[in-house]
């Protein structure tokens, strides 16, 4: 029995990991783009970015998942999620947009937290805007955003379980299945509780990783 449960949970965990990784890969750069939008001097773009952030931070991720998964089927001639792995990609889209909005605010805080003098020092040395961003601001921003980002990323690990609402077979789904009946067992509660071990192990690993990154950047004071 134990082996069966571990196998099923591990499969669910793999799905959780996949959603986690795809969300990060999509949301980290998209968040930067949105943060540039919300800092833009072009007012319509700034308003649009801030509107998007408001909507996605202001409504439950669960609701966003439901809308993104079901609504295209109603309004489009062909349901884009009616492919193999469609559930996963619907969840990924919702997670990426939602998390990009949170990340964008962290980025904005990080960029605005770098002293103006840094940018000006680059300017008077004849550096271009993009040189200043990539060579001067970026690393100082990263140093500033590691603590809030680690918070957000650890939250993401656990938020992946919300994808259960559109029946993505992630870790909680896999644990809960033994309660409802699956693999010849039903009424088993411990597999659901046991999923906590997976989450703890993974977030523990991430915590160590972030501590390392912070330590690596301790060499400069700014």
């Amino acid at each position: 029995m134990f082996i069966t449960v571990i196998q099923a949970l591990s499969e669910g965990f793999l799905e959780t990991l996949k959603l986690f990784a795809v969300t990060l890969v999509g949301a980290l750069p998209l968040g930067l783009v949105i943060s540039f939008g919300s800092m833009s001097r072009f007012t319509p773009l700034r308003w649009l970015s801030r509107f998007v952030v408001w909507v996605f931070r202001g409504t439950p991720l669960m609701l966003q998942l439901i809308i993104i998964f079901y609504v295209p089927g109603f309004v489009l001639p062909q349901n884009p999620w009616a492919i193999s792995g469609g559930r996963f990609w619907a969840a990924a889209v919702a997670f990426i947009i939602n998390y990009a909005c949170y990340f964008s605010e962290i980025y904005r805080g990080g960029i605005e937290g770098v002293p103006k003098g840094q940018q000006e020092a680059g300017q008077v040395l004849g550096m271009t805007k993009s040189q200043i961003f990539f060579k001067v601001t970026l690393l100082q921003m990263i140093k500033r955003i590691v603590p809030p980002m680690s918070n957000e990323i650890i939250t993401l690990v656990k938020d992946t379980s919300i994808a259960r609402i559109i029946s993505l077979q992630e870790l909680i789904y896999a644990g809960y299945a033994f309660l409802k009946g699956s693999h010849g067992y039903s009424g088993l509660i411990w597999p659901l509780f046991f999923t906590g071990v997976y989450y703890l192990a993974f977030t523990g690993l991430l915590t160590l990783l972030f501590a390392r990154i912070e330590k690596k950047m301790r060499y400069f004071g700014g």
Partner: peptide, 17 residues
């Protein structure tokens, strides 16, 4: 144009990294 001038700031503004 900026290359014709150099500026030393009150707060130094060295790149810390």
């Amino acid at each position: 144009n900026r290359l014709h001038f150099g500026l030393v700031f009150q707060q130094f503004n060295l790149f810390p990294q």
